[in-house]
C-alpha cells in the first residue's frame, strides 16, 4: 500500500517545530513510561558487578565502585520506544562504551556483534558498530539522580539511536560475538535492528 487512506474525520495535530525530531509513527510524551517483559529485579549496588566478554573469555569486570571510577559522560538525547512514545532531551550520565573498551586496552570492538545480558534473563543483540564512536553508554544516572530500578537501575545500556528496548535495563554483561543472534524481543516478533527513523518495529519491517 503506497499511500495510506485518509481516516474520515481525523484531524491533524501536526506541530512543525517538533516533528523534525519525531520518527514516523511516534508521539511525544513528557512522562517516562515503564515497559518490561516481567517483574523489576531488586539489585543491591553492593552485589552488583558488570562484565565485558569476548565469547566465553573475560575482557574485564567491575564492581560498582570500580565502575563509578571510570570516566563519566553526560549526554542529552531523544529516546524512542517501540510502543510509540518519544521523549525529547533526556539527560543521562554513565560510562561511554568507548571508554569501557579503552579501560580494557581496546581501541576497537574485537568482534562484530554484541549481546547484552541482564538480570531477569533479558537479552538484546546489537552490531558493535552501533555502540562505538559516542553512540552508546552504560547509564547509571537519569536527570542527575541514580537510575530507578523500574527504569533499569542500577545500570542500563543506552543506545538512543535505536528503539529503546535495545537500551537494555539491569545490564550485567556485554558479550562480543562473531555472528549475530537474536535477543529476547528480537525472537518474539520485534525487529532485529530497530531503527526508529526507518520504523523497524517488528519482524520484516
Amino acid at each position: 500500500m503506497d499511500r495510506p487512506p485518509v481516516s474520515r474525520g481525523f484531524k491533524s495535530k501536526r506541530q512543525a517545530s517538533e516533528t523534525a525530531r519525531l520518527p514516523p509513527g511516534q508521539y511525544l510524551t513528557t512522562d517516562f513510561p515503564v515497559l518490561s517483559a516481567g517483574p523489576t529485579p531488586e539489585i543491591r549496588v553492593a552485589d552488583w558487578k558488570i562484565a565485558l566478554q569476548l565469547g566465553g573469555s573475560l575482557l574485564g569486570k567491575w564492581t560498582w565502585d570500580e565502575f563509578e571510577a571510570l570516566p563519566q559522560t553526560t549526554i542529552a538525547v531523544d529516546i524512542h520506544c517501540v510502543t510509540k512514545w518519544t521523549k525529547l532531551g533526556t539527560i543521562w550520565q554513565g560510562v561511554g562504551f568507548d571508554d569501557l573498551l579503552r579501560s580494557v586496552g581496546l581501541s576497537e570492538p574485537p568482534d562484530a556483534y554484541v549481546m547484552a545480558h541482564c538480570d531477569g534473563g533479558y537479552t538484546t543483540n546489537l552490531p558493535a558498530a552501533d555502540l562505538i564512536a559516542g553512540k552508546a553508554m552504560i547509564a547509571t544516572r537519569y536527570d542527575g539522580l541514580p537510575l530507578a530500578p523500574a527504569h533499569g537501575g542500577p545500570a542500563r545500556l543506552l543506545v538512543p539511536h535505536l528503539y529503546f528496548w535495545k537500551s537494555a535495563k539491569w545490564l550485567r554483561r556485554l558479550r562480543f560475538m562473531p555472528k549475530d543472534e537474536p535477543g529476547f524481543w528480537e525472537s518474539r516478533g520485534y525487529h532485529n535492528y530497530g531503527d526508529p527513523w526507518r520504523e523497524q518495529r517488528y519482524d520484516g519491517d
Partner: peptide, 15 residues
C-alpha cells in the same frame, strides 16, 4: 560494517 539487516525470518506485517 553495515550489520543492520540480517536475513528475515518472518515476512513484514503489512498495513
Amino acid at each position: 560494517m553495515t550489520a543492520t539487516d540480517t536475513p528475515l525470518q518472518y515476512p513484514r506485517i503489512e498495513w
